[in-house]
Simulated assay, not measured.
Amino acid sequence: MDVLINVFVALHIIGIASLLGGFLTQMKAMSAGTARFTPAMLHGALTMLITGVALVGLNQADDQSVNNLKVGIKLVILVVILGLVYVKRDEEKIDKPLFGAVGALTTANVFIATLWT
């Protein structure tokens, strides 16, 4: 079971990398006012959602403790990110505050995951 959990953790990290990497590659475009949500950002957010839910289920099935408050907060943040990216994915230009919010929420999710023990 540990190997399966570790595979899903790796996939979850790949999803985070895709979402945050997509944001970081658009930073120059954001300062020019031409940033847009890339497909990598949408797919990264979806990967995070699917693997995160799977990780909770696998950890509970393995009788490991799960911090439901932490998972719930991370889920709410991810749903907001996913909603913003999904709704605005076809627009040619995204407003700077909205685009910045996705980056800030993604970063907050990373810090919650790593610092909340």
Rank of each mutant, 00 (worst) to 15 (best):
H12V: 04
V85H: 02
H43Y: 15
V79Q: 07
L4G: 01
H12R: 07
K70V: 00
L19F: 06
L84Y: 06
A35C: 06
R36V: 11
I13L: 13
G44P: 08
V85I: 14
V79Y: 07
M48R: 06
D62N: 15
N67Q: 02
L49E: 11
F8T: 04
G33S: 11
F37Q: 00
T114I: 09
V85Y: 11
Q64I: 11
I94W: 09
T107G: 09
N59E: 12
N109Y: 09
G103M: 09
L49V: 12
L11Q: 01
R89W: 13
G72T: 11
N67D: 14
M30C: 08
K70W: 01
V71N: 01
A32C: 02
L11P: 06
L78Q: 03
A35G: 08
F111N: 01
Y86K: 13
G44N: 04
L49S: 14
Q26A: 03
H12F: 04
T51E: 05
G33W: 12
F8W: 06
L49F: 13
I77L: 15
V3N: 06
L19S: 05
T51K: 04
G57T: 05
A32I: 04
N59Q: 15
L84C: 07
G44K: 02
L49H: 05
M30S: 07
L4E: 09
E92N: 15
T34L: 15
I81C: 12
F99Y: 14
L42A: 12
G21P: 04
A32F: 09
G83K: 11
L24N: 03
